[in-house]
């Protein structure tokens, strides 16, 4: 566990991202889709921070903004206190040394035409690190610590000859070879079998121990987040609704949406009827005109007047546990 009193390595300040759906030729039909709505959060050095949400919640967008695959519509991102929003040229390249990403789909994230050696050594090439001999050594080390043994067997293979789990290990080796300070793991196991996922989780934990890397773990699974993460943030339709220490969020969730997520998880051996919180409406309310709480449409707890009009902000509810709900 990580103490919260040390300095944040990454800060998001009031980040918003909107996409405008393509306007038609005549100018009509341009609709704004809000992927992220004024998100602020801090991630501390050495922790694994979980960002949990359903599909379309904006969790992947958040990760892509941090690695600068996309630009925020508003707000600022800081790495070690330096703003990264407008980086270019040499400074951007230096930033790439520090921040890496592990992608969701290992079948798509490796170039089918490059051998494993070429794929993993590419970051070294790009940043002109070491000579050929030393690079080979580093690649072998990276493959070994990603659990691909014996590494020599894999160097000259190609992605199509590997299983999904092995491919994801290659992707991890590629991300970790630069010894980055900060790594975003975007649903790294959603395409993999359960037994393989557990292997990947344990590799990430080992990497954190060995390299003192900070992770942002993006996932739809609260169970996986509980296993991996020191702190967990829950995101709903672009809004952060709850942030807190992992165990606290899982054992004592405060936001009705987090509670609904936990309710929905199958629990070994429990019958379906067992619900602890029961915060979800049977029939959704029409919430298209609601200015207030984003979860109003599905929330059983919501108060008609207050929740419609006012948007709840993240407030401390007990210690480091923040919740965006009037009734938490």
């Amino acid at each position: 566990m990580v103490e919260n009193n040390n300095k944040p390595i990454l800060q998001l300040k009031d980040i918003s991202k909107t996409y405008s759906s393509k306007t038609s030729f005549w100018g009509g039909g341009g609709k704004e889709i809000v992927a992220l709505n004024h998100i602020s959060l801090e991630i501390f050095k050495g922790e694994i921070f979980g960002l949990i949400g359903e599909s379309g919640s904006g969790k992947t967008t958040a990760g892509r903004l941090i690695v600068k695959l996309e630009k925020p519509s508003a707000g600022k991102i800081f790495l070690n206190g330096n703003e990264i929003t407008g980086l270019r040229g040499k400074v951007l390249k230096d930033f790439r040394l520090k921040v890496q990403m592990i992608f969701q789909d290992p079948y798509q994230s490796l170039n089918p035409q490059l051998s494993i050696y070429d794929t993993v050594s590419e970051p070294l090439h790009i940043h002109k690190i070491e000579n050929v001999q030393a690079r080979k050594y580093l690649v072998i080390q990276a493959l070994k610590s990603a659990g691909l043994t014996p590494p020599d067997d894999f160097l000259h293979r190609y992605p199509h000859q590997l299983s999904g789990g092995q491919r994801q290990r290659v992707a991890i080796a590629r991300a970790m070879i630069l010894k980055p300070k900060f790594v975003i793991a975007d649903e790294p196991t959603s395409m993999l079998d359960a037994s393989i996922s557990a292997q990947i989780f344990n590799i990430l934990l080992e990497m954190r121990e060995k390299l003192d890397t900070t992770f942002l773990f993006i996932s739809h699974s609260l169970a996986a987040a509980r296993y991996l993460c020191d702190r967990i943030a829950v995101i709903y339709r672009g809004n952060l609704v709850e942030i807190g220490p992992g165990e606290a969020v899982i054992q004592k969730p405060k936001h009705p949406y987090t509670q609904a997520l936990l309710d929905a998880l199958p629990k070994f051996g429990h019958r379906y009827e067992v619900r602890r919180y029961d915060t979800l409406l049977k029939v959704e309310r029409d919430a298209s005109q609601v200015e207030g709480c984003p979860f109003f449409g599905r929330c059983k707890v919501a108060h008609q007047k207050k929740c419609i009009r006012e948007r709840p902000h993240l407030v401390e509810s007990d210690g480091s546990h923040l919740v965006a709900c009037f009734y938490a």
Partner: peptide, 26 residues
């Protein structure tokens, strides 16, 4: 749009490198 191009970008590859090393063979 494929993730392996994005992965190369995140690794810091230049436009030239992405075009000739990652896109061209494909």
């Amino acid at each position: 749009q494929r993730p392996f191009i994005e992965a190369a970008k995140v690794a810091g590859a230049s436009h030239m490198r992405i075009i000739f090393r990652h896109i061209m063979p494909n």
